[in-house]
């Protein structure tokens, strides 16, 4: 435990990186995921196909493979970013598929009459979706989106595979220096619990505030 406290500054820096990775990726994933979900329910067949392809391919590839493929493979195409930016891009893409599926389930749970009423008032498809359906859909999927968020905190550890210095990488390096793996990794694990447990609690609070049960 002393070892962890002595290196508290390293752990805190790692935690900050983990938090930054998570928040940036989740914001981007929310936007991309919502657009993909809109594609998948749109009346335009090519968009539906594109949305489905995106979700099925990215979701079924391991995150580690995506991370390595993007960082070591895409450089050959001249697509080169820093490790941190690459990690944010990959985490956003991967998480966006889960957000898309979750939002889509929310859209499907909104009563049919809502869309019918909106259409009979003369709203177009984008208007129906953005003004009537999505605001209700989001409120029903607060809890599942929270699960996606918490999974993302844990998934962000995979950024260490391309040597982003997040909590996991801090622990890995500290272990290399001190050769005290139990203390080092337990410390990192506790730090992750410090992030995931309050997040779970906040999601619960948010859910009670805004969620509609169906």
């Amino acid at each position: 435990m002393r070892l962890v406290l002595d290196n508290a500054d390293l752990y805190l820096a790692g935690m900050a990186t983990t938090v930054a990775l998570t928040l940036l990726s989740f914001s981007a994933a929310l936007v991309i995921g919502t657009v993909v979900a809109a594609f998948r329910v749109s009346p335009v067949p090519p968009l539906r196909t594109a949305g489905t392809l995106w979700v099925e391919t990215v979701r079924n590839t391991p995150l580690t493979v995506l991370m390595v493929l993007f960082f070591f493979g895409f450089t050959k195409l001249g697509i080169q970013y820093s490790a941190f930016t690459s990690a944010v891009i990959v985490l956003s893409a991967y998480t966006s598929t889960f957000v898309a599926e979750t939002v889509r389930s929310g859209i499907n749970s909104v009563a049919k009459g809502q869309a019918e009423a909106a259409r009979s008032l003369g709203l177009t498809f984008p208007q129906v979706l953005v003004r009537v359906i999505l605001p209700q859909a989001f409120r029903t999927v607060v809890a599942p989106l929270g699960s996606v968020f918490i999974a993302l905190i844990k998934n962000s550890s995979i950024a260490s595979v391309i040597s982003v210095v997040d909590l996991t990488e801090v622990a890995d390096r500290l272990n290399n220096d001190t050769a005290r793996p139990v203390a080092v990794f337990l410390g990192a694990g506790m730090a992750y619990l410090l992030l995931t447990l309050p997040s779970g609690f906040l999601v619960g609070v948010l859910e009670r505030r805004v969620a509609i049960k169906r």
């Binding site: 905190i153 998934n155 550890s157 890995d172 272990n175 793996p181």
Partner: peptide, 10 residues
């Protein structure tokens, strides 16, 4: 609540 990667490393 543990990231799996940490467990693998451990």
């Amino acid at each position: 609540g543990f990231p799996l990667l940490l467990l693998v490393l451990f």
